[in-house]
Design a protein around this nucleic acid. Structure first.
Lengths: 223, 223
DNA sequence: CCTCTGCTAGTGTGATCACACTCGTGTGAT
DNA sequence: ATCACACGAGTGTGATCACACTAGCAGAGG
């Protein structure tokens, strides 16, 4: 049980899902992928994961293979399971899809965002800013994930939300990799401030545009 | 080996995927789900599927659980795996997401659609029309799937296309169910003719609108 | 006649082993 | 020194079994 095998509820499983060793491992690995705990190209061995989490190979095998069907892991040429290295085109495709789906999810969430939610978002944004100031990349990526999905969950969308999570699973490792290459300065200017301010004004249009701008800002790192 | 366990290439696995008993079974079940071979509420037993396809429980277990992570199957209250019965809201959500994603995928595919593709689409549409005339629901659903994904595959999108397939997996069984309730007459007026005619004129805008209209037409069945 | 108990068949889950394949390495022959 | 073969460690896959749990039913006891 080396890493945080939490049972916290992620949004991906809207329907009932039994709490088994496989599902716990699956959730734990999902979080690690979204937060960039793995390096693109890294080999993910079923037996090694099983040993890390103190289970047999069976739950590990299921969790890893589920991640393959979600596109978060892929097969290498030699039948090994690895963390994908996204090509430039594919990374751009994911960000384009993110902009498309996440602005729509945000639009649906807008009416359900209460004052307490705005305060929670501002607290998360503060933590993100201190993480950036300290160059703490892990805390930044975790905060960024929490900020976006605090909003998206309020959409109560049972269809689009799982699709958005798949996109984050796929781009998480590469995003972490790109950030380490560019340094913390490259992510200094996100649009979270614009997001919360638009929410305080009750300006739905500006809110959606700020979300889109925040995602588009990630595309600039590719050029 | 009761049902068609084909090895035909579906679009969902853009990356390399080994050809094993599990993946073959997974593909076979995906096709059956998209074509409406299963009834909402039907129990999917791992051992029974294994017996049907003449394999052991292991590949069946993997294939079925993969479909659960894709949202094509869900857990019932008593831990059994069943084909989901979509609520009205959820069905509407899926169609909304389909309209959003599939018009975008079509827009990307437009430049890659050659004359031979248009002819292929017209041939598929003819088969669909005869299926409707004969009240052959299975052939209709298969043709409809082929028509749409012949277009979508030409987008060469590695990200959006798997998401679209997930949506079809989820709504396939319920769509079949709805069609049987309404009879073949309800699906008589699709927009496939408008799609191919817009392609012949080279009118991208009209093409995308026809795709969107074809999907929206499905929403009318819900009211 | 009703009720409660216990059996049975079925479910998914987890563990373990055998197999085929790949990659690297070391050893032996040329 | 160089090349070739073989061995070993590691990989995912498939089969099989034991376990816990659930639903249904049959039968004994009230």
């Amino acid at each position: 049980m080396a890493n945080g095998m939490t049972t916290e509820r992620t949004a991906h499983r809207d329907a009932f899902s039994p709490d088994t060793a496989s599902t716990r491992l699956h959730r734990a690995l999902r979080v690690r992928l979204c937060e960039g705990d793995f390096t693109p190209g890294e080999v993910i061995s079923i037996r090694r994961i099983a040993a890390e989490y103190g289970t047999s190979a069976m739950p590990s095998r299921e969790a890893v293979r589920w991640l393959v069907t979600e596109g978060a892991l892929i097969f290498s040429d030699s039948r090994k399971i690895i963390v994908p290295e996204l090509s430039h085109d594919r990374f751009h495709e994911i960000l384009f899809a993110r902009k498309n789906l996440e602005t729509e999810v945000s639009r649906q969430a807008f009416d359900n965002i209460a004052g307490t939610d705005i305060e929670a978002l501002e607290r998360i944004d503060e933590r993100i800013n201190t993480a950036i100031a300290q160059g703490d990349l892990v805390s930044y990526m975790r905060g960024n994930y929490q900020f976006h999905f605090h909003i998206y969950r309020l959409s109560h969308s049972q269809v689009l939300l799982p699709l958005v999570e798949i996109l984050w699973l796929q781009y998480g490792p590469s995003m972490r990799y790109i950030c380490t290459r560019w340094g913390a300065s490259s992510i200094a200017d996100d649009y979270h401030r614009e997001v919360t301010q638009a929410l305080r004004r009750g300006d739905r249009s500006a809110f959606c545009q700020a979300i889109a701008a925040d995602i588009e800002q990630g595309m600039l790192l590719l050029e």
